[in-house]
Amino acid sequence: MNQNRRFLLKGTLAASVTGIAISAGLLTPKAVMAAWAKQAFEATDVDTALNAAMGSAATTDSDKVKLKAPDIAENGAVVPVTVSSSIPGADVIGILVSTNNQPLTATFNLGAKTEADISTRIKMGKTADVIAVVKANGKLYSARKQVKVTIGGCGG
């Protein structure tokens, strides 16, 4: 009986030590995550999000920013989007959805040799404008396209 108790105690002690080790380990990724632009992503309107993510909300419509998205998305949970640009010196690409709770969907910081041509898939709650923003030489260029959504991808 007594021995069993000892054994149990040892077991709990070992478990709690592991727990501490895990929580200590968790601290590292948190430090890495600090780079995530929380303010920009949690902004609830397009201008605030742009200001926080790119330092300005003044965008110029440009036909050099190409946004490829479907006219009608049957499933709002998976909307394929391609953003490309022929503007020289493009270093940041942003994708926003005008009516989502948090419009800023993604930003892409391009390396020196990376082409301004990104494809991904996004979620849309309802019919909205998809806005592509390209930052080049400190200026913002944008293109937008309305995508009709028949089934929303954010609720459930």
Binding site: F108, I118, R121
Partner: peptide, 18 residues
């Protein structure tokens, strides 16, 4: 080459090409 920052509004099982 690329640093992408995403929100929850990227689709499940994300696809990315560059």
């Amino acid at each position: 080459v690329l640093n992408a920052q995403w929100n929850g509004s990227i689709s499940k099982n994300p696809f990315l090409s560059f």
